[in-house]
């Protein structure tokens, strides 16, 4: 089995589980929520780098005729990336545990800037929906990858 496929598959599984865990603070508690959020930022970068060939080639042929599904997939992914970036950025701004520990600064009052809390909460709901759609549009690949990963055990 190609080791790259295995890495991509388990990275994607970890991302999916992490997104589910991050959507509900009571499951992890705030401390794990924030550190896991920072880990997800790194995982998203790795996910993008591993998909870079697709991103580069699709950007080139985006306007080609008969590329409806590809176009939908591309803009869905772009929206997911934008929302994920905004969620991580707003999460860093309202952080109470991880960022203060990293920067050695006292955490600000959580409700001091309700706008960022609002952005963080609402966009995380959008991320949940977009992640489901991202999985839906890549379902065939996901099932094929799962079969390859588990098929040779």
């Amino acid at each position: 089995m190609p080791s790259r496929l295995r890495v991509v598959f388990w990275l994607d599984v970890s991302l999916l589980l992490s997104v589910c865990a991050l959507e509900t603070v009571p499951f992890t508690g705030l401390v794990i929520h924030e550190w896991l959020g920072l880990a997800v930022a790194a995982m998203v970068v790795a996910h993008l780098l591993l998909s870079w060939t697709w991103i580069a080639s699709t950007t080139g042929r985006l306007m080609a005729a008969r590329a409806g599904r590809t176009r939908v997939n591309y803009f869905l992914n772009l929206t997911l990336f934008a929302c994920m970036t905004a969620v991580i950025f707003s999460g860093v701004l309202i952080s109470q545990e991880a960022i203060p520990a990293l920067t050695m600064r006292k955490a600000g009052e959580m409700d001091a800037d309700l706008r960022w809390t609002f952005v963080h909460d609402r966009l995380s709901d959008v991320v949940l929906i977009l992640a489901g759609l991202h999985l839906a549009i890549n379902w065939t690949w996901s099932v094929a990858a799962a079969r390859t990963v588990w098929g040779r055990r």
Binding site: T24, V25, P26, F27, T28, G29, L30, V31, I32, Q96, E97, M110, D121, S124
Partner: peptide
Amino acid sequence: RRRRAPWP
């Protein structure tokens, strides 16, 4: 989600 207890 508004309740942000530090632990699970």
